[in-house]
Design a protein around this nucleic acid. Sequence first.
DNA 1: CATATTTTGAGAGTAGACTCCGATTTGAGA
DNA 2: TCTCAAATCGGAGTCTACTCTCAAAATATG
Lengths: 196, 196
Amino acid sequence: MSDRPAQGLRERKKAKTRALIQKEALRLFREQGYSATTVEQIAEAAEVAPSTVFRYFASKEELVFVDQFPAFAEALDAAPADLHPIRAVRVALREVTAAQTAEELAEGVEREKLMFTVPELWAASLTNVSGTLRSMQEILARRAGRDASDPEIRNITGAITGVMFAVWFDWVKDPEMDGPAEIDKALAHLEEGLRL
Amino acid sequence: MSDRPAQGLRERKKAKTRALIQKEALRLFREQGYSATTVEQIAEAAEVAPSTVFRYFASKEELVFVDQFPAFAEALDAAPADLHPIRAVRVALREVTAAQTAEELAEGVEREKLMFTVPELWAASLTNVSGTLRSMQEILARRAGRDASDPEIRNITGAITGVMFAVWFDWVKDPEMDGPAEIDKALAHLEEGLRL
DNA sequence: CATATTTTGAGAGTAGACTCCGATTTGAGA
DNA sequence: TCTCAAATCGGAGTCTACTCTCAAAATATG
């Protein structure tokens, strides 16, 4: 216990509390649904005051989020420069998912499931989605030596995310599905020009 | 006044009230923003009681919606059977937009703009979006003689909507843009396999 | 004109996310 | 151990979408 002098007890406790609150929140959301769960219940489960919950998370919605984009962005940036954007995205995705433990992946799916199921969360993700789209557009543009506002880059980005969303919708409906594999297949299909 | 025996005064009045409420709501949303506008204000502007607003619209969000999908679905169904899905969608879209007056189109853009700007509305559209996606998938599947759950159909549907969303995002940012034309170009790009 | 049905108004009431604040506890540092 | 600053508690309070009820008004019907 005394071998981690990195940060004070205060910091550690804070991190712990934060993690605990989020964990209990996700459990309750899973068990009784998002909107049926009140912040008060979450507070009680985590043994803190309701106001404390809001000190750690700006809103109820934020309890669900974990930003996974940075890792993906980095991988995409690092992919070989001569690949077609779609291929590069596939490579980056493979890398990112490979780096995740089975548990992390499962938790991710659960989060996505909430996202695609609860309207209020879908709302909160607007910012995320549009931000992600823009970032991806920028990265792909840079890779292709184009301007970020290039329509072709925009279309490619849109098509990629559209295809991914479509798979997610299916995945959420059928959790048995091998999501990452299916996404890769779908992107391959897109890469080949969506033959029928 | 006595030359429209089609429906009683009651019905006509109802339709009028409904239209008025929605019109005032949209005006207020445009002028002072969505969340800054309370239902009470809308009621006042339309000269009805707040409870009356809820008798006509189930929620504040519904004040924004107008389902444009049926018309599109019909046009898509009617498109020549031998066209590639993407091409068929382009044809159907052209038809639908051609049938709209400039005013209708402008109002549509305004609605979209709200949609893509206000998180709460984005949320409410979740149901719409997933429903639309599914419907489109079904129609395209039928046209291609495939099952509605066919992954390739799903991918095509996803890519189409993804590309359209991407354009919408741009369109909302730059209202000067010729949206329909840009969407058509984007779909053409998709149809050609997203060359770069 | 008389009666039945619908629609509306007015207002009280609920729920639950989120804020604010004074008092108290808890860890940090000398 | 003593002091300071930060974090937490507890709870009262706000805000607004949305519900419910009942009586009054408008409209349909005969």
